[in-house]
Design a protein around this nucleic acid. Structure first.
Length: 110
DNA sequence: TGGTTGACAGTCC
DNA sequence: CGGACTGCCAACC
């Protein structure tokens, strides 16, 4: 039985799914969208529910334009996979940082 | 039941 | 410019 996501986590997933292909977002922007000042919970929600393609969690990076984390790891093969997924969307990283900051998706309502 | 930790970010010194 | 503290939500011990 899969653990049923909380209302808070549902909001996070809903926002993440809004991110179009070829664009990325940050934990901070997600936090603002869901209406909470805590960006930690955002990462936790994604960590607890890696619903692979259903939730493009690989499009979520750190506000510092760093790769951030993936599948509960801040580095390693999982991160390499995240980079590969982003690379498929023409999102390239340089020295562990996003090259084009313009690729960050901005929500209409802030 | 209570305390600590974690895919982070923003502010202060 | 760099290190440390705080904020906040859910899971884990």
């Amino acid at each position: 039985m899969e653990r049923q996501p909380t209302n808070f986590e549902r909001r996070v997933y809903n926002v993440v799914k809004r991110v179009p292909r070829g664009r990325v977002t940050t934990y901070g922007l997600l936090a603002r969208e869901v209406g909470c000042g805590s960006c930690r919970a955002i990462g936790q929600a994604l960590k607890r529910n890696p619903y692979a393609p259903r939730i493009p969690c690989h499009r979520v990076i750190a506000s510092d334009l760093t790769i951030g984390g993936y599948a509960g790891c801040t580095n390693g093969k999982q991160i390499d996979k995240k980079l590969a997924l982003l690379k498929k969307e023409k999102i390239l990283f340089r020295c562990g940082k996003l090259i084009d900051s313009n690729r960050i998706y901005r929500f209409q309502n802030r």
